Computed example of a mutant assay.
Amino acid sequence: MRQREQAGRPEAAEQAARQAPASQRSGVLHRLAQDRAGEQVMPLFRRAYEEALVWAPGLLAARLEA
């Protein structure tokens, strides 16, 4: 997933993360969100929030505050 992200394919990286086993999906998406910058991260935050991933609101707030 990181290889796709680094190759400039964030949608492919996120799609691969969503196909990960449920026990790993949240952690992988969290790492992707931490690595993304600027507006690239907003769609990922939106989907994470819709999925009720507990880390999404706090990480989003920290990003907005910075």
Score class of each variant (00 low, 15 high):
residue 9 R to Y: 12
residue 24 Q to N: 09
residue 5 E to Q: 06
residue 55 W to F: 11
residue 58 G to Q: 08
residue 41 V to S: 03
residue 51 E to M: 11
residue 7 A to M: 15
residue 62 A to D: 10
residue 9 R to G: 04
residue 54 V to Q: 07
residue 32 L to P: 01
residue 11 E to V: 09
residue 9 R to M: 08
residue 45 F to P: 01
residue 31 R to W: 12
residue 58 G to L: 06
residue 59 L to G: 01
residue 4 R to M: 02
residue 52 A to F: 12
residue 30 H to S: 13
residue 55 W to I: 02
residue 30 H to E: 10
residue 50 E to C: 14
residue 37 A to Y: 14
residue 14 E to Y: 00
residue 33 A to P: 00
residue 52 A to P: 11
residue 4 R to D: 00
residue 54 V to R: 03
residue 59 L to Y: 09
residue 65 E to V: 13
residue 17 A to D: 05
residue 44 L to T: 01
residue 20 A to N: 10
residue 17 A to H: 02
residue 9 R to I: 06
residue 43 P to S: 14
residue 11 E to F: 07
residue 12 A to I: 12
residue 7 A to V: 06
residue 36 R to Y: 15
residue 3 Q to N: 14
residue 15 Q to T: 09
residue 44 L to Y: 01
residue 27 G to M: 05
residue 41 V to K: 02
residue 36 R to F: 15
residue 28 V to T: 11
residue 42 M to D: 15
residue 26 S to I: 04
residue 4 R to C: 00
residue 53 L to T: 04
residue 36 R to C: 06
residue 24 Q to K: 05
residue 53 L to A: 05
residue 65 E to I: 13
residue 17 A to I: 09
residue 19 Q to W: 07
residue 3 Q to L: 11
residue 26 S to V: 08
residue 55 W to L: 03
residue 46 R to W: 13
residue 36 R to S: 07
residue 43 P to R: 07
residue 26 S to L: 05
residue 23 S to G: 10
residue 28 V to R: 09
residue 30 H to W: 05
residue 5 E to C: 07
residue 32 L to M: 14
residue 49 Y to V: 10
residue 43 P to H: 12
residue 29 L to S: 01
residue 23 S to K: 08
residue 20 A to D: 11
residue 21 P to E: 05
residue 53 L to Y: 05
residue 37 A to G: 13
residue 47 R to T: 11
residue 28 V to M: 04
residue 61 A to D: 04
residue 61 A to M: 07
residue 56 A to R: 00
residue 44 L to E: 00
residue 62 A to H: 14
residue 63 R to K: 12
residue 60 L to T: 01
residue 60 L to P: 01
residue 60 L to F: 10
residue 28 V to I: 13
residue 31 R to Q: 14
residue 36 R to W: 05
residue 18 R to C: 13
residue 20 A to M: 07
residue 8 G to K: 09
residue 53 L to N: 15
residue 66 A to I: 07
residue 14 E to M: 05
residue 24 Q to M: 06
residue 9 R to E: 03
residue 15 Q to D: 14
residue 51 E to H: 03
residue 31 R to I: 05
residue 45 F to V: 03
residue 65 E to P: 03
residue 25 R to A: 12
residue 3 Q to F: 09
residue 35 D to I: 03
residue 38 G to P: 03
residue 61 A to S: 11
residue 61 A to G: 12
residue 24 Q to D: 04
residue 6 Q to Y: 08
residue 3 Q to K: 15
residue 30 H to Q: 09
residue 20 A to G: 06
residue 27 G to C: 11
residue 24 Q to V: 06
residue 59 L to N: 04
residue 17 A to P: 02
residue 25 R to N: 02
residue 1 M to S: 12
residue 47 R to Y: 12
residue 26 S to W: 08
residue 21 P to G: 07
residue 38 G to N: 15
residue 39 E to N: 04
residue 65 E to C: 08
residue 5 E to A: 03
